[in-house]
Design a protein around this nucleic acid. Structure first.
Lengths: 181, 181
DNA sequence: TCGATCGTCACGGATTCCGCAGTTCTGGGG
DNA sequence: CCCCAGAACTGCGGAATCCGTGACGATCGA
């Protein structure tokens, strides 16, 4: 139904453009060269400040025409590189219990991650290095619901060795401006 | 500079409106009654699916006029209940190292949380119950930068007893549709 | 009951969005 | 070296949207 996630990773190797302004720091030596150049990055920064900023204003800020900005934004959206959405603090909005759950997996992590990601209560799933293999942010109606998700559904998944829960008490900061500083 | 965070918690006790559709479940017995009613919730859901959806379309979906939707959205934005932004997977976008850091605090947690939240590298700060008092999502340029933030800046804060790090390997899911199911 | 405040509706002008060519630039093959 | 194919950018015109303004009705407090 909905557009789905970000983690699709494009899979479009026929786009070795890069060059132009050259990515700063050159940190992309590892594997996937950033599929977005500096201009698209600037556009993303604009939209991180205000997701509804008009294309013309963005174009003026990054030195592009309005149509070009529109096309780039559309492509970034289609590729799943970014999404323009309203974000809220569920605790502020009301009735909802949140928790971060660390999961330890026996064997391959991927299938467990996919299974957890398929749960509607999982808002955020990330594979990590450290004392947990998986970190999952869970959003629930109430404590009973949360207990059910953690102790029944997650722990029942094959490959799950153990879990550790961190129930949210208060959200202190939530930003999406990593580029702006 | 920017509008800042969500966690401002309104602090406007002179607004005991509520009523109207009556919040489901009646969970608002504790403290702050949800400052948003069912209609605003429906608007938020619309914008969670597409942050650029026109006001008229939203109004048609929730049964309101275009101007009414516009004013409600503006208020929700001003109150900090929600923000409309572009969200990305930094790992996909390129050059950036992410990690979740669990922090254990000696004494009052709040000042530590505020100090961490003041760091530009901290994208997400939440107080939790469990084996960590604080969970912080850190976004860095590279490993050196990450190491510096964790081992120098965070550990140097007064009251920090210990930290535990989970370096991000791969983001599997990232949704903001908690209301839609 | 009266006054005040808030939410909603209605409307008009400025702005923005969107599709559609036309042009330029890059890269590959003959 | 030339030509072609593809992608990206620009400019333009019509339709839709955004935004300010004013007025009406309801609710709450005095």
């Amino acid at each position: 139904m909905h557009s789905e996630v970000v983690a699709s990773r494009s899979a479009d190797p026929s786009n070795p453009r890069s060059s132009r302004t050259g990515n700063p720091g050159g940190s992309g030596s590892g594997n996937g060269t950033p599929p977005v150049d500096a201009v698209s990055l600037a556009i993303i920064e604009q939209l991180q400040e205000d997701g509804r900023r008009p294309y013309a204003a963005i174009g003026k800020a990054v030195g592009l025409s309005e149509a070009a900005v529109r096309q780039r934004v559309q492509k970034l959206l289609d590729q799943g590189v970014m999404q323009i959405v309203a974000v809220t603090d569920p605790l502020t909005v009301g009735f909802r219990r949140q928790a971060m759950v660390g999961i330890n997996v026996e064997g391959d992590v991927d299938p467990v991650a996919d299974a957890v990601a398929a749960m509607p209560e999982a808002e955020y799933v990330v594979m990590t290095a450290g004392s947990h293999d998986l970190l999952v942010e869970i959003v629930c109606e109430d404590d009973d619901h949360l207990l059910d998700v953690i102790n029944k559904r997650i722990r029942a998944l094959p490959g799950v060795r153990s879990t550790e829960s961190f129930v949210y008490l208060k959200l202190k900061k939530q930003t999406y401006m990593w580029g702006t500083r």
